[in-house]
Amino acid sequence: MDLLALKTILLVRDLGSLAAAARALDLDASNVSRTVSAIERELGQRLFQRSTRKLSLTEAGEAYLQRIAPLVEEIEAANEDIAARSQQPRGTLRMTASVAFVLEGIVPLLPVFHDRYPDISVELFPSDSNLDLLAEGLDLAIRLAAAPKGDLISTKLLQTHYRVVASQDYLEREGHPEAPGDLSARNCLCFALPDFRNAWRFRLGDDAPFDVEVSGRTTISSALALREAARLGLGPALLADWLIASDLKDGRLVDLFPDHTCAAANFETAAWILYPSRVYLPLKVRVMIDFLKTEFGRSGN
């Protein structure tokens, strides 16, 4: 039983179908089906239950794949390390992230990435909707969340934090709120997501967290537009630290409560790198993941 055969059955498990595994390996689905059948015959056990609608692991299949997965991953990692010494990563890398994160986090890094990996072309798909990586043929995604959900493999890129900010013009006109509770009487800028719209959460040191109800005349579904509205003095806004770092440094925006920890619904949020399968990780994807981790780590996040 060769390594490609083991990778194939693990991909079928990870991606949930013979067709998806075939696309990832650039093979015909019939070839993948024959590989699975051959392994099942060799083992004398059925690994997958097949139906017209779905593919699911048998009890024996689940136990077997759990045992072999770490071995295959270790062999793949060793192979990639050797390949990296002698091969230049190449190909087209397709990735997605929110519009704001693409603009603020990814695009500024592209000159360095292209200088380092001239044979990799990058296709970016900015979207504030969570695109389906398998359906859209994407290699990886960056998602902002408390914790990733679903079957995708994930690794943390950076811990995110939120701040309540406003412009100098706004503070000169309306005055600086003395405490987070004062925001309830202010015309705040609201982000059109359920966790952000009606209440913001605060914590001072080790004290218990508390929520402050917020409302305002302006609700925006774009983080970039929300930041611009705050810059223009339309009111206080709750924004991610990576989005407003330069504004705070240059004085375009002011952190209203620097002693408090701020959040929408959860203090533990992060940017996560997600990709379809740990088993089949092309060199172009591996170097992008390592590059992003290094660059964001260098920035102190």
Rank of each mutant, 00 (worst) to 15 (best):
P236C: 12
V214G: 00
T218F: 10
L234H: 14
L232Q: 15
S215A: 10
L224Q: 10
F210I: 15
E213T: 05
R217M: 05
L232A: 14
G235E: 10
W200S: 05
R217T: 11
F202I: 07
S215Q: 02
V214T: 03
F210M: 13
W200D: 04
I220N: 14
L224I: 07
V212F: 09
D211K: 15
D207V: 00
A237M: 13
R201Q: 13
A229F: 06
A223W: 07
E228P: 12
V212E: 06
P236L: 11
R203D: 07
E228Q: 15
A208E: 10
V214H: 00
S222V: 08
A225N: 13
S222C: 06
A230H: 07
T218D: 04
L232V: 13
P236K: 03
E213Q: 05
R217P: 03
L226A: 11
A237Y: 12
D206V: 13
D211H: 09
G205M: 07
V212Y: 09
A223I: 01
G235R: 09
W200K: 08
E228G: 06
D206Y: 03
P209K: 12
S221Y: 06
L204I: 01
V212G: 08
S222K: 00
S222F: 02
D211P: 07
G233E: 10
D206W: 07
D207N: 05
A229V: 13
W200T: 11
R227M: 11
D207A: 01
E213A: 08
T219G: 01
P209L: 15
F202Y: 10
D211V: 14
E228A: 02
L234S: 08
L226V: 08
G205C: 04
P236N: 00
I220M: 14
P209Q: 15
L224K: 00
I220T: 13
G205I: 05
T219Q: 04
F210L: 14
A208D: 12
E213G: 03
R203N: 02
A223H: 15
A225P: 02
F210S: 15
S221H: 04
D211M: 14
S222H: 02
L204V: 00
R203E: 05
E228D: 14
S221E: 07
A230V: 13
R217E: 08
R201N: 09
R217H: 02
F202C: 05
A225W: 06
I220V: 09
T219Y: 00
T218M: 05
L224G: 02
A229Q: 11
D211I: 14
R201E: 06
G205F: 02
F202P: 04
E213C: 04
R227I: 13
A230D: 11
R231F: 02
R227L: 15
R201F: 14
L232F: 08
W200Q: 08
D211Q: 12
D207S: 07
R231Y: 11
A237K: 08
S222Y: 05
V214L: 05
R201P: 09
R217A: 05
L234E: 09
E213L: 09
A225T: 13
L224P: 00
W200A: 06
S222M: 02
D207I: 00
D206R: 10
L226C: 05
T218L: 07
A223E: 12
D207L: 03
L226I: 03
G235T: 11
F210A: 15
G216C: 08
R227F: 13
R227Y: 06
R201H: 05
A208Q: 10
V212Q: 11
